[in-house]
């Protein structure tokens, strides 16, 4: 059996441009006017937790830009996912998208992220942090910033007590990890029709044939893209209504907005498409300058893609569970597959 749980301290040395506690977001909060929030790239956040034997919904750290460095006096088990980046433990390069055994007196650096916007860092165990409406995800507007700064000491409760492989400094786990590709300079994002697609004559052809570029005005509320748009015609005033994550809005100006997880919950702009649920994690990684095109799919294809994404996560989760069980590493015993955000 894994060792008893103990509490240790993670000392944050460098805090990137922005680092926050993060998880998959709030459940049932939107009925109360609070956006679900949570990791922009839910796939990477989920995989990081799965790789350290945590429930997918455990709190981790979301890192954007620059260098993030921490030290630990005791051994910890971590995983880093998200945009390709350089990760080192005591100066030695280690792999992303794998469990990483950090020895006592370890120094971990995550830097030079490229091709995407965010990295996710998970620790085996639970990080000690505040929760608001059941989630560690930031809600800055309501006074819950959750930002992590250099010099901060973060407490971790973990049953991991170190793991020594007889021959290798880092054991090879060979897990079936679904790693998204960040290589292509132009991303293809799957979309389904929206209520005002037909009213915007020509938008179908534009979205599937032209290139759109993410601009610097983008944030966690939504991505703003440069590219050709047409304004829907013949619509009366659209009264405020709820808008899902991934809605493609055309505001008054010539731009396209793709709403993110911290969107304002209601809006009155025409909606010409929706990103599929399975394509949202990639959108959560888009940086200013990122180019993308769109591909129309049917609702059935959209659901099928989400099925496949979840199947891969479930397969990884059960492999980690049997592996960690076999080599006596702590793991969260999964009761039912989470139907939540991921």
């Amino acid at each position: 059996m894994p060792a008893a749980e103990r509490t240790l301290t993670i000392k944050i040395r460098e805090a990137a441009w922005l680092a926050t506690f993060q998880d998959l977001g709030r459940e049932q909060s939107e009925a109360l006017g609070v956006p679900c929030g949570g990791a922009a790239d839910q796939h990477s956040a989920s995989v990081a937790n799965i790789l350290v034997g945590n429930p997918r919904t455990a709190a981790g750290i979301e890192i954007m830009g620059g260098r993030f460095t921490f030290t630990t006096s005791k051994a910890v088990l971590i995983a880093v996912t998200g945009a390709p980046a350089d990760v080192t433990v005591n100066g030695n390069k280690v792999k992303m998208w794998e469990p990483v055994c950090v020895p006592a007196k370890g120094r971990v650096v995550i830097a030079n992220a490229r091709g995407g916007m965010r990295n996710y860092l998970a620790f085996s165990g639970s990080l000690v942090t505040e929760h608001f409406m059941g989630s560690a995800a930031p809600e800055a507007r309501m006074g819950f910033p959750q930002q992590i700064s250099a010099g901060q000491h973060v407490e971790l409760k973990t049953s991991y007590a170190g793991f020594e492989h007889p021959y290798l400094t880092q054991p090879l786990f060979r897990l079936p990890v679904p790693v998204p590709s960040f290589e292509h300079p132009v991303w293809t994002i799957d979309i389904v029709v929206g209520p005002e697609t037909d009213a915007a004559q020509g938008i179908r052809e534009l979205l599937s044939s032209r290139e759109y570029t993410v601009t610097a005005k983008s944030n966690h509320v939504g991505l703003r893209l440069d590219g050709p748009v047409v304004h829907p015609e013949g619509l009366g005033e659209i009264v405020s209504h709820g808008v899902p994550i991934g809605a493609f809005e055309i505001p008054h100006g010539d731009e396209l907005i793709i709403l993110g997880r911290y969107r304002t919950l209601t809006a009155g702009y025409p909606i010409v498409a929706f990103a599929t649920k399975a394509s949202l994690p990639m959108l959560g990684q888009a940086r200013p300058g990122q180019r993308m095109t769109f591909r129309w799919v049917s609702q059935e294809e959209a659901v099928e893609a989400q099925h496949e994404a979840q199947r891969l996560l479930n397969a990884l989760e059960s492999r980690v569970q049997s592996l960690f069980g076999a080599i006596d590493l702590p793991h969260h015993s999964r009761l039912v597959p989470s139907q939540a955000a991921a």
């Binding site: 049932q28 009925a31 209504h241 709820g242």
Partner: peptide, 8 residues
Amino acid sequence: LDVVAGVD
């Protein structure tokens, strides 16, 4: 999962 209220 959740319900968002609009005007109508």
